[in-house]
């Protein structure tokens, strides 16, 4: 997996899926979801200002609430390269990995300022800023296998042997 490089966006604890993608936007076409990324949060103009590769650095329980996969899809569509949080809600973490968006667990809010440029080595769980390296909890084998396949759908195709037939 490539190294992801981008600017830091800081969010605090318990950013729930209603903040990441408000309920009213859930019926929007999937390729339009990026416009609503973080629209329910305190950073209402996030979707307009975010650039490709930017990285969300958040507190604990990121993505709590509903199971809507539209939430990580909205972040991915908006250009977010990765989310690094102190902890994730279970379903959000699985959804992000299943659509091929890497997430890492470590609390780095005190170490970064909004707008700092950092880079992330997902496979190794390392985060770099200037000359400093930070260590995240390693991803499970399962999660890495899914990310390396490019998401769960690609992984299932491989396991079912569908890729050979098409």
């Amino acid at each position: 997996m490539d190294i992801i490089k981008g600017r830091v966006w800081i969010f605090q604890d318990n950013v729930d899926t209603d903040q990441i993608l408000p309920g009213y936007a859930m019926a929007e076409p999937f390729n339009e979801l990026g416009k609503y990324a973080m629209k329910g949060s305190e950073k209402v103009d996030f979707a307009k200002r975010v650039r490709v590769g930017d990285i969300i650095v958040a507190g604990k329980n990121f993505g709590c609430g509903s199971s809507r996969e539209q939430a990580p899809v909205a972040l991915k569509e908006a250009g977010v390269g990765s989310v690094i949080a102190a902890s994730f809600a279970r379903i959000f973490r699985r959804n992000a990995i299943n659509i091929g968006m890497p997430v890492l667990e470590v609390d780095l809010r005190e170490h970064f300022n909004e707008g700092d440029t950092i880079s992330v080595d997902i496979a190794k769980g390392l985060i770099f800023k200037d000359n400093t390296t930070f260590y995240a909890a390693p991803l499970s084998k399962n999660a890495l296998a899914t990310l390396e396949a490019g998401g769960l759908i690609e992984r299932v195709r491989k396991e079912l042997g569908v890729e050979k037939r098409w």
Binding site: N98, N142, L152, I153, V156
Partner: peptide, 20 residues
């Protein structure tokens, strides 16, 4: 067990789910 849409898609194909 609550999951996301992609996991439902995978389970519709396989009839299984990977869990810890």
């Amino acid at each position: 067990i609550g999951v996301g849409s992609t996991e439902v898609a995978a389970a519709m194909a396989t009839g299984t789910i990977d869990l810890e």
